[in-house]
Amino acid sequence: MKVPVSGFTILDHTADIGLLASGPNLEEAFVNAAKGMFSIIAHVDTPVSPLQPFSIEVEADSLADLLISWLNRLLYLYDTEKVLFSHFEILELKPTKLLAKVAGEPIQDKHKINTYIKAATYHDVQVIQNEHCTLRVIFDV
């Protein structure tokens, strides 16, 4: 499947939903994975303002695990703070640690929520680093 150099594409999966995200570097690819995930959650045509900021710090044993932890942390914040996220800034990204600032808007009727994602799974997770970075994730919806 053709993936843009920077952006995301939704993948078909019988029971669930997959995502390919990419970027010229890991940081941008991680941001695009988060954007892709929230495009599954809510309609992208309604703007989401960065009203409520949060800091995220996750640690993991590998880059692939770090990606899953990053997305699951965002899902946790979404579910408990009821905030739809739109702005993601990676402050530090090492193979085992990620620091980020994220922001979004409390969920309102205008946001048109589509899908509840239970979790990002490790099934078939991929982090490919060539001239640009590609990430692949399957979500449980």
Binding site: A60, D61, D65, I68, S69, N72, L75, Y76, D79, T80, K118, A119, Y122, D140
Partner: peptide, 15 residues
């Protein structure tokens, strides 16, 4: 959400 997070936590721990 409770079950989703319990599973998320332990899949990471066991990994």
């Amino acid at each position: 959400g409770l079950g989703h997070q319990v599973a998320t936590d332990y899949i990471a721990t066991m990994g």
